[in-house]
Amino acid sequence: MAVGPSEIEKIAHLARIRIAPDQIDEVASRLSDILGMVDQMQAVDTSSVAPMANPHDATQRLRPDAVTEPNQRDTFLAIAPQSEDGLFLVPKVIE
């Protein structure tokens, strides 16, 4: 499967990664190579095979409903790029 520049722009937007305009063609060609390799899968009929999400087909364990985590705000805010009054700061959110 070959992907073109417009698809790369769309995916890059979904992934929130800026790609410099002069690199888009190269990224498109690399991705096309990878997807071409991946397409070997299409030759196999898997219609009767159930998808496997976990190698053991295990099921979820449940946790008792109990508060176990103390307040560590100061520790966590200490590694934040920007914070004030106990809040993480980001450029203005427009709804």
């Binding site: 992907v3 995916i11 992934a15 991946v38 299409q42 196999v44 898997t46």
Partner: peptide
């Protein structure tokens, strides 16, 4: 990240991600 985003995006999910999960079982 881009390959993964592509494989999960609308219209490609079945052909890539679901397909790969089936192959994984094989």
């Amino acid at each position: 990240i881009l390959v993964g985003t592509y494989a999960l995006s609308a219209g490609f999910y079945d052909a890539y991600y679901r397909k790969a999960q089936r192959i994984r079982r094989l």
